[in-house]
Design a protein around this nucleic acid. Structure first.
Length: 400
RNA sequence: CGGAGUGUGGCGCAGCGGUAGCGCGCACGGUUUGGGACCGUGAGGCCGUGAGUUCAAAUCUCACCACUCCGACCA
């Protein structure tokens, strides 16, 4: 990608009133743009990061046997009445009517939808377990959107749903997803603390949150630094002596529902005695746009973002020295070769000062910075965004 | 939803009764070029919306809308 063509350009100033670092940096560097309170456009750089986050999640969930689908975002009122959540969850639900006065909800979650889907297709106990997930938009009528992209009214989430014949099989999978989540967060460079919490409008049961420590976090948790396990303040009971208090961001949450929803919606299988039994059901969410914010919160310095390699929008940021004809043609050649080899390169081909290019490179935070100038001769200077050392290597070594 | 703020060129801000200005950005010309270069010229705003007060409103009053922060609530 040529930086001269990249939309939009970086900005020197943060938006008025922005406090959270993720908000300031993601907007300045051109990753996100606000439409209204709690509603954001993912710009080319931001969307590339989301794509990579999703890919990590996809790989780990597929390993658990889950299959990816995509469900609708506008739902009929009737399906929400089956569980009573049309009324019970009306605080978070956006509702609308069409021109014939038919009522709909905009999706804030998909339990009802997935259960409807499965009851239509579940034919035999042999079909279980069923594990389905999708990446899609969630609409939630938040009383207050805040923290940049950390809490929006419309955001992206990966939600996984699993249905099982037996309680044992359900809990085994619940543990398997817990491990998959820890792997996902670890691969993204994040340390997640498993936190016991309340279930909100989802369940009376305790749920398991995956919390990332961060000063801007809205959640207060108490955790044991040794085991990296804790409890949310909402269920803290004062007896946990070794626990320390910390602010954290909830990046994921998994919910054991038992047979509560499947009973209400009539999702049954027939056991060997010929009796109908409700399926065991759970749901598992990771807020992917929130993760974009979490990563920005965790990985930055006073000059800008510092993306972990696995989610970086590009791997290399190639800079041609300004005002040097020879360097420009060498950089052009390296850009073409690197691109051809499949490497993801952002090539700063702009007619602007070196200071500007370096400042933008630091702001955007691509892991490897390459500079080609008269000073580098036949070689290329390489520097990591996370470090200070520069090194000269040949274009051949680079291509290897 | 309670509390506190803020809405003025693309962005960040000043002006707070006499008819709009600064910085950045942008355009053009020139000089520059390894850490957000410099000089010159120029374009760009019914001052959030609507009512009112006044000879006169960006400025005062009222209503509404939007956004931000704190709280409550919540992924």
């Amino acid at each position: 990608m040529r930086q001269s063509q990249l939309f939009p350009k970086t900005s020197r100033q943060a938006p008025a009133g922005a406090i959270a670092e993720n908000h300031k940096l993601l907007v300045r560097a051109g990753f996100i743009d606000q439409l209204m309170a709690g509603s954001w456009t993912l710009l080319p750089l931001g969307w590339r990061v989301i794509f990579k986050i999703n890919q990590v999640i996809r790989e780990e969930l597929n390993k658990t046997g889950a299959q990816e689908i995509l469900m609708p975002l506008m739902h009929p009122k009737e399906i929400w009445n089956e569980t009573g959540r049309w009324e019970k969850a009306s605080g978070v639900m956006y509702k609308l009517k069409d021109t014939r006065e038919k009522e709909f909800a905009l999706s804030f979650t998909h339990e009802e939808i997935i259960l409807d889907l499965v009851r239509k297709h579940l034919q035999s106990v042999a079909d279980l377990p069923i594990k389905l997930y999708h990446f899609s938009t969630k609409f939630r009528n938040e009383p207050r959107a805040t923290g940049g992209i950390l809490r929006g009214r419309e955001f992206l989430m990966k939600d996984l749903y699993s249905l099982h014949a037996t309680e044992e099989d359900f809990w085994n999978y619940y543990e398997e997803v817990t491990r998959a989540y820890l792997t996902i967060f670890a691969r993204l460079g994040l340390k997640a603390i498993i936190t016991e919490a309340a279930g909100g409008v989802f369940t009376e049961n305790r749920t398991r949150e995956f919390q990332i420590l961060a000063a801007v976090g809205e959640d207060i948790i108490y955790y044991d630094p040794k085991t990296k396990k804790g409890v949310n303040k909402e269920v803290f009971d004062e007896n946990k002596k070794n626990f320390v208090e910390a602010h954290a961001i909830e990046a994921g949450n998994i919910f054991p529902f038992g047979t509560y929803y499947s009973d209400k919606m009539g999702v049954y299988y027939t056991d060997k005695d010929g009796k109908k039994k409700p399926v065991w059901f759970g749901s598992y969410g990771i807020g992917t746009t929130r993760l974009l914010g979490v990563l920005a919160e965790v990985f930055h310095d006073d000059r800008g973002l510092i993306w972990p390699e696995i989610v970086a929008p590009f791997k290399y940021h190639l800079i041609a020295a300004s005002g040097q004809q020879l360097a420009a043609s060498k950089a052009e050649e390296i850009y073409k070769k690197l691109s051809k080899s499949g490497a993801e390169v952002l090539y700063d081909d702009r007619d602007t000062s070196m200071g500007q290019k370096f400042a933008d490179a630091d702001l955007i935070g691509i892991p490897h910075r390459l500079v080609v100038s008269d000073k580098t001769g036949d070689k290329v200077e390489i520097k990591q965004r996370s470090g200070n050392k520069t090194e000269l290597i040949s274009p051949e070594e680079l291509l290897d």
